[in-house]
């Protein structure tokens, strides 16, 4: 059936498209600027007026992962020729890679480790929060729990204090039990922080799955555990995906605790990137490349789960 539109509707549609385009420009410009800056040569990053057309270079990324020092005198041509491509980029910028005196290995800036730490801590804590949250939510949704409302309120109440308030006691406790600057410490912290959120969101999703599905599985000869894994879990996938994205973003972006609870071994990327601003002359291209790499996992994760997310967002808005 062809849709017949009035003039008013067509005007409205055009207006809506325009509004979306304007909103997109406003939101995507900073992201574009970060991405663009992370491929610029250092002298192009802070020009006035801004440089829009430029020849992209990977130099900022080469600098991001290595420890460097200023070149006092030009590098010898044969040394330059023998250097790998990324080191040439650093020489081109008037800097040299700091090498280990004994092994002559290039020294890492520490960003790579911190990036790995971010991935490890975020992925594990998200997995733990979502899986425990889903099981807890299932329990609350399906069984008679004495004091159910009070428990749920208690779980939610862990989110009511601003994290800063508990930061110092947490710091002292962590130091006392030896969790300071450990992966496991951060994982526990982020899991605990995300768990209350996961329980509440997942309870909403599981409440919407009719009990009859499980009951059908129970009379069909399955145990409750089997019914949970074969019936409830596939049905709750949308909710799980949405919850996982939110938990991942929270853990990935967390700054304050990461700054306080970690220093070297377990430090994540968020406290590292701004620490580069103050050290000597700020190389904005390096900071931009760090920020750009930092954006990528969330973008990929969200993109992979986009179909689930869309359904998750409109959840409750449509009656099945």
């Amino acid at each position: 059936m062809a849709e017949i539109k009035t003039k008013g509707e067509m005007l409205f549609n055009r207006g809506a498209i325009l509004a979306v385009v304007v909103a997109l420009i406003i939101m995507l410009t900073p992201i574009y600027w970060i991405a663009a800056t992370s491929f610029k040569a250092r002298n192009l990053a802070t020009t006035i007026p801004p440089t829009v057309v430029f020849e992209p270079t990977l130099a900022p990324f080469a600098k991001l992962f290595t420890k460097r020092s200023q070149l006092r005198e030009p590098v010898a041509p044969e040394v330059y020729e023998a250097a790998p491509w990324w080191e040439k980029l650093i020489y081109d910028g008037g800097e040299q890679v700091v090498r280990n005196k004994k092994t002559n290995e290039p020294t890492s800036s520490g960003f790579g480790n911190r990036y790995m730490n971010s991935l490890i801590v975020s992925i594990i804590s998200t997995f733990l929060a979502v899986s425990m949250g889903t099981l807890t939510a299932y329990g609350f949704s399906r069984f008679r729990v004495p004091g159910e409302q009070d428990w749920l309120f208690f779980i939610l109440s862990t989110r009511m204090l601003p994290p800063v308030v508990v930061a110092i006691p947490m710091f002292l406790m962590y130091r006392a039990v030896g969790l300071h600057d450990t992966h496991i410490g951060l994982i526990i912290l982020y899991t605990a922080f995300n768990l209350s959120f996961a329980v509440w969101i997942m309870k909403g999703f599981i409440d919407e799955i009719p009990r009859e599905y499980e009951e059908a599985a129970l009379v069909d000869g399955y145990t409750r555990m089997e019914a949970f894994f074969k019936i409830v879990l596939p049905e709750a996938l949308t909710g799980i995906a949405a919850t996982a994205v939110f938990c991942f973003i929270t853990a990935w972006n967390e700054y304050a605790f990461a700054l306080m609870m970690t220093s070297k071994n377990a430090q994540t990327a968020p406290p590292y990137i701004p620490s580069q601003v103050g050290s000597g002359l700020s190389d904005w291209t390096v900071i931009a490349s760090g920020a750009f790499l930092f954006l990528v996992p969330v973008a990929i994760f969200t993109f992979l789960l986009r179909n689930h997310l869309l359904r998750g967002m409109s959840f409750g808005a449509i009656r099945k």
């Binding site: 009719p210 009859e212 599905y213 009951e215 059908a216 599985a217 009379v219 069909d220 049905e235």
Partner: peptide, 11 residues
Amino acid sequence: IAFVFQSFSLY
């Protein structure tokens, strides 16, 4: 025993 629900409950 088999059970048929009012909501059909097809997975």
